[in-house]
């Protein structure tokens, strides 16, 4: 197990290095990187100073090492708009985004698995057909438009939930999150539901197809022949088999959630890093964009690593030593 994690970590470092190289090369292909890293309004003296400070007058390989050093030490340049270092700007908004993505993941599981299970167990009923039709719709609905309609219905027309912003936070076990307060959940519910929309459809489909496949397996019939209760057959024998693909896919989709939070955060004025990215793109605040990219790439790598480990813990048939990436 330890050997597996170490090897996986080494691979992750390799991927991170490859990605940093791509970002670095990308910056050079697009144009002189100085114009990516320096405020368009700055004069020649400032530009020269920055070139020297960032070492852009040195050979390419040395520049790359400097870029790496900057990335590792958290110095990726200052935001043109905020005037402060770009990396902390992203990092301080990260908890809000993670919180939103996490809440939507919970909703996707809580809503998707029971519905998918029902549709798989009773495929012929009207309710099941409605669930499956709804999941096709869920794949097709443009997230941003649904978000707008949610605000329209639940905030403007019914007035049940607040339309924008993040609720009060509380600190618990060293983590500060609005998920620890009731009011916080009132704020996060609509954006999380919006962000969960696609995932709910995905979980429903995965659970349903897993269920309808598993119920015809001999081990389910054998469990029935053993006289087990229906709840144990569904809750243990069936669910444990279905959960493996669902957890794996959801884990891998967590990165997607974070990326897609860009849209949800913009609609619901959620103070996360996605909203910062959009305003940075609009104002061409490039150091922030580069910092965002590096942070997300690192997050993706961590998520993939965690999912791999989780998968091997869940499925006894996967032997860690033999798995190749």
């Amino acid at each position: 197990m330890t050997a597996f994690i170490i090897r996986r970590l080494m691979q992750s470092v390799g991927v991170a290095l490859a990605m940093s190289l791509i970002v670095f090369i990308g910056m050079h292909i697009v144009g002189d990187p100085i114009y990516i890293l320096v405020d368009p309004q700055s004069d020649q003296a400032e530009i020269d100073a920055t070139i020297r400070r960032l070492g852009l007058d040195r050979p390419l390989w040395e520049q790359y090492l400097l870029f790496l050093k900057g990335a590792v030490t958290g110095n990726l340049g200052n935001s043109f708009v905020h005037g402060t270092s770009a990396l902390p700007l992203i990092l301080e908004r990260m908890p809000a985004t993670l919180e939103l993505a996490f809440a939507s993941l919970i909703l996707a599981i809580v809503i998707g698995i029971p519905l998918g299970l029902y549709a798989g167990l009773y495929p012929e009923t009207v309710a099941s057909r409605a669930i499956m039709a709804g999941s096709i719709l869920g794949f097709s609905l443009p997230t941003f438009w649904v978000g707008i309609m949610m605000i329209m219905v639940f905030a403007v027309m019914l007035g049940w939930l607040p339309s924008t912003g993040r609720g009060p936070t509380a600190t618990y076990l060293g983590m500060t999150s609005s998920l620890f307060t009731v009011e916080g959940w009132r704020y996060v519910l609509l954006p999380a539901l919006n962000l969960a929309l696609l995932k709910v459809s995905l979980v429903i489909r995965l659970t349903k197809s897993g269920t309808s496949e598993a119920i015809h397996q001999d081990y389910i019939k054998f469990a029935r022949a053993k006289g087990l209760s229906r709840s144990r057959i569904v809750g243990v024998h069936l669910l444990k088999n279905i959960l493996i693909p669902v957890v794996t896919v959801l884990g891998l989709e967590f990165g997607n959630q974070i990326a897609f939070a860009v849209v949800t955060e913009t609609i619901f004025a959620w103070p996360g890093m996605g909203r910062l990215l959009i305003s940075s793109i609009q104002s061409l605040d490039r150091p922030v964009i580069v910092a965002y990219l590096i942070i997300t790439v690192l997050m993706f790598i961590v998520i993939n690593l965690v999912v791999d480990i989780l998968y091997s813990l869940l499925d006894p048939r996967v032997r860690l030593g033999e798995k190749s990436a």
């Binding site: 001999d218 081990y219 006289g227």
Partner: peptide
């Protein structure tokens, strides 16, 4: 079922829950 009347299936690869 499983108490007074028990059953054994054909394919041992499939009858035990793999997980």
């Amino acid at each position: 079922r499983g108490d007074r009347i028990a059953m054994i299936f054909q394919d041992p690869m499939m009858t035990l829950n793999p997980v």
